[in-house]
Amino acid sequence: MMMHDNGKSVINPYLPRIHKVKRIKRETHDTFTIEISADGFKFMPGQFNMLYAFVGEVPISISSDPADGNVIMHTVRRVGHTTSALCSLKAGDSIGVRGPFGNPWPVREQEGNDIVVVAGGLGLAPLRPLIYHLLSNRGRYGRIYLLYGAKTPRDILYRNELARWRARFDVDVYVTVDKADERWHGNVGVVTSLIPRVHVDPLHSSAFVCGPEVMMRFTTRELINLGLNAERIFISMERNMKCALGICGHCQFGPEFICKDGPVLSYSRIARLLSIREV
């Protein structure tokens, strides 16, 4: 469907484009990755799509490699009607996609810097395209750290990739969980407990953080204690995006519309808002 804007035909941004589901991969007991045909779809790390499973529409970050022209992935946790419908899709089913929307992680601007990526829970999903980008362009960045915290060992996402990234000698990967039993031989503690392992040049370092808001608040505090500049700490915010075009106001966060001005924002831009309870 086409709309008209000052006499020019434009694609209706409210109309989902239909893609075919290629595969559904179970990541954890409640989280699935939906792989859909790319069909020429291009995006940048950190952007999100509105996914429509014919029972409602939800904003979901894109979790695949932006350089992969064949497939787009979205990692979805089953929490409600729409996400349950998405997780129940089968290969060959149709899915509606609007996007990509939002500001991406500013990867080019951070070239030459050491990089700290901090993910909490499902927050690893919007960071995965960033990690693919960093590793594909490894020579353009200094040291790279990935710190990932999950609730329990069974909640760890992308286990194979974490193992693969850890096996490289040019990226430091640390994983921790909040709770574990004796069968777990890794770290136990919150993700901020991993930050003392980061040895970067604070003047030439950037951080990318995604996770629950409380986790991001404490993580940014620790990163600033480490000497990082708040302007080079980027966080991905989550709000109840509806139109994804900065019109409806559902995702308003102070003066920012998360769907349009975010989801990626520099910490310096929103630090004050994060501490205001009413926002």
Partner: peptide, 9 residues
């Protein structure tokens, strides 16, 4: 923070 289950999203 562990009590808050901050990794839960």
């Amino acid at each position: 923070l562990q009590l808050l289950e901050i990794e839960e999203m």
